[in-house]
Design a protein around this nucleic acid. Structure first.
Lengths: 111, 111
DNA sequence: ATTATTTGACGTAATTATACGTCAAATAAA
DNA sequence: TTTATTTGACGTATAATTACGTCAAATAAT
């Protein structure tokens, strides 16, 4: 790659793409599902649940944290992870807004 | 990477992740927006519109075609691209279903 | 018939993502 | 105090993505 070109697109598209990309791995979707299913969740719970090592799970958590989709409450040596309701809501709205703005063509050339 | 682990997750999660991943690049979102805005669209139109070379645009089109999100009608030497309404609808439903299934926790530990 | 368009296949370089092990620091338990 | 847990930082190897140029084949235009 000579140069990354993502920054040449509309900011809105970049933001949307970042969110979608973060949802673009089954491990991260599984993490979100697990966090939605429980109140208390530390990393060990996740790496027990997922077929991945602790370090890899940590990496996926980092990606989700960077977008603010999840947050971690430090409790001593442990960190209790949970979803960020506000960001999840924004993410949901953004997805629906974007997908609704895309309506398929109805011309005869598109069978 | 010793081995890809994606296939160890639920098929449903894998499918959802594949769709989200495909939406995870601003160029592909821009392509979808453009296709939604016009009836007739050949690749030259897209590479004029986007800040990317024709070959790169072609690569993104390929990714979208592989998931069935768009389709191309061959018209002589040209290919008229358009959205696949059915798949777009499925994608929309899947997104909403998945995101709705994730509701943030309400415990006191999650402020 | 010759020239111009348009596309997809192929190859390639650079970047990013994925997966994991090891280690040190911090806290908890013994 | 010593030992065990838990986490995040760091490094590393492999795979995938992104971006582009070149080329041949097919069709359209001259």
């Amino acid at each position: 790659m000579v140069k990354a070109k993502k920054e040449l697109f509309d900011q809105e598209l970049q933001d949307a793409a970042r969110f979608f990309k973060c949802l673009g791995h089954p491990a991260r979707l599984a993490i979100l599902q697990y966090l939605a299913s429980t109140d208390t969740c530390i990393m060990g719970d996740l790496s027990d649940e997922l077929p991945l090592s602790r370090t890899t799970v940590n990496q996926h958590l980092k990606a989700l944290k960077e977008l603010g989709i999840i947050k971690g409450e430090v409790e001593g040596v442990r960190v209790n992870y949970c979803l960020n309701g506000d960001v999840m809501e924004r993410l949901k709205k953004m997805s629906i807004h974007f997908l609704d703005s895309i309506h398929s063509c109805s011309s005869t050339s598109c069978s």
